[in-house]
Design a protein around this nucleic acid. Structure first.
Lengths: 135, 135
DNA sequence: TTGTACTGTAATAATTTTTATTACAGATAC
DNA sequence: GTATCTGTAATAAAAATTATTACAGTACAA
């Protein structure tokens, strides 16, 4: 997987600490040491899920869209999740082989179970909780 | 993450089904629909961990190095694991920012916890169990 | 109403990671 | 000795990720 989850968490932690004050993508990118356009893209995605508010124009920027106590890391994870945490499952095994024929189905089902365990665990931590670990 | 875990599981399932009979990397690659050299590389890695035996020369090939009931998917996962299941943590945030300064440490610790949950769950399934799901 | 400082988003390029390919030395059976 | 394997390295191709650039749209403020 990419580093998107970490970026999303970082962004949301900053916004929580900002306590309602708007932060610009440039400021956030400065903390992340990443590209403002990339950060805006992630912010745009978080906005789509309602975890972030944005205001355009001069003096604009971003703020949390929900209370930090009402955002779990499972929620955040879902915004960036693409495949399974155990890896890609896009092999195209040989259907003439009895194992090859069934492996994708068996792996998929198994991977889904693991993903659910991960999400269940992530749901135990809120943004407020995570954020409180910073001085 | 890459597709290595799936490949490793696929290989081991084939070897379990082969029931001691040696399989060549070419045969395995045929089932995986992947490259023999890549498969040998993964087999070589599994061998390093003792989960696979190999025999060189004509008529050679690979077999399981332990009983399928004694190999858990957590064991297999460890052979291919590089970073956390939640993604790479190689950002270099701004140390001048109070969040940036501490985020890597906090994320690392948190990611480790999740990885442990995953590994704990994977430990509940043995290769024998997984393999039995195939007709 | 014009300039300035933002977001939103697309297009493209650079980088990194993953996978494939090729090659060949070494081992073993026949 | 020759054919058939493994072991491994070097290299190339492909895919995914991240960075960069650009610019239209929006809002504020002088």
């Amino acid at each position: 997987m990419s580093g998107r989850f970490q970026i999303a968490i970082h962004i949301l932690t900053l916004l929580d600490k900002a306590d309602g004050k708007l932060l610009s993508s440039q400021f956030i990118a400065g903390s992340l040491n990443a590209n403002p356009a990339l950060v805006r893209k992630e912010l745009s995605n978080l906005n789509k899920f309602g975890f972030v508010n944005s205001r355009e124009g001069q003096g604009g920027g971003y703020s949390l869209g929900k209370r930090a106590a009402d955002i779990t890391l499972a929620d955040v994870f879902r915004t960036v999740q693409t495949g399974s945490v155990l890896g890609s499952t896009k092999n195209q095994p040989n259907p003439a082989c009895s194992v090859g024929k069934q492996i994708n189905q068996n792996i998929s089902k198994f991977y889904d179970e693991i993903d659910n365990v991960v999400i269940g665990t992530l749901a135990n931590t809120t943004l407020a909780n995570f954020s409180s670990r910073f001085n």
